[in-house]
Design a protein around this nucleic acid. Structure first.
Lengths: 135, 135
DNA sequence: TATTGACTTGGAGTTAACTCTAAGGTATAT
DNA sequence: ATATACCTTAGAGTTAACTCCAAGTCAATA
């Protein structure tokens, strides 16, 4: 598969894919006799993993570390497992922050929608919710 | 409340709070006669909102826009509401990406944990899951 | 009252993750 | 055969969001 095809498959730029390969976020991709990248099925799976994990905010450094461990062979399996578990915890923490923000937003949206209808802002006076009354 | 107290309350640096104020992520904070910031309850609510929304990846620019609208008065209520709804949609999209990554990680962790136990990697051959078999 | 530590501003520097540029090679349609 | 579109590398530039620095002021303690 050409770089262009992989790009449109995962919605990333060619520059990004070349950058990922250069810094080691994915293993090296085989070239044609002309020197042009030809992504194998495995390469594509690496790109899939990389873009998926990156989309979840997993830092490049962690992905590089993972690829390094992978290339060292099977004796790094438990290290890779630990790395993934740690990454998992981080993502759970981040997701919690998203949920907190959503809660706050939902409250504010409700107040504003009510204001658009009735013509006046009515913040919850007892402040029992997660949100501030003002702003 | 002093800048230091606000910092430890929301776990951000003084530099960050001063930066937020300077660029308009929060409205201007009143100073003491000596020129030192003294955060009011409302200021603190603004900081709470800002840090909460930033933690969810909401860009600075959006927060600045929100504060601007707020300062223009009540005729911007529906615009503020629209802004929050759009932000909400974005966060839902981002959270979906987190869930996708978590799914992939959980599968990989399971495979690796099994490998640590049994001594060999057993990727799901029929590839019915969201994940790649290799990597 | 002197020292210590925290505060102020304006502006420069840093970091992660791309993104672009230059100079040139490859592949395909006319 | 040549134009066009896409590919290559190395390295420089960009962007968001801080983070640090210098030079000076303020406040609490010994």
């Amino acid at each position: 598969m050409t770089i262009k095809e992989v790009c449109s498959k995962f919605n990333v730029s060619p520059d990004t894919l070349r950058y990922y390969e250069r810094v080691g976020v994915i293993p090296e991709v085989r070239r044609t006799s002309g020197g042009i990248r030809d992504y194998s099925d495995d390469d594509i799976k690496w790109v899939e993993t990389a873009t998926c994990f990156r989309s979840a905010g997993m830092p490049i450094e962690l992905l590089i570390e993972y690829v390094k461990l992978y290339q060292e062979g099977d004796h790094t399996i438990s290290a890779r497992c630990d790395l993934l578990k740690e990454a998992r915890e981080r993502i759970l923490i981040e997701r919690k922050k998203f949920d907190d923000a959503l809660k706050k937003m939902d409250y504010k949206i409700k107040v504003y929608e009510n204001a658009v209808e009735t013509g006046k802002l009515e913040w919850n006076k007892d402040n029992n919710c997660c949100c501030c009354n003002k702003s």
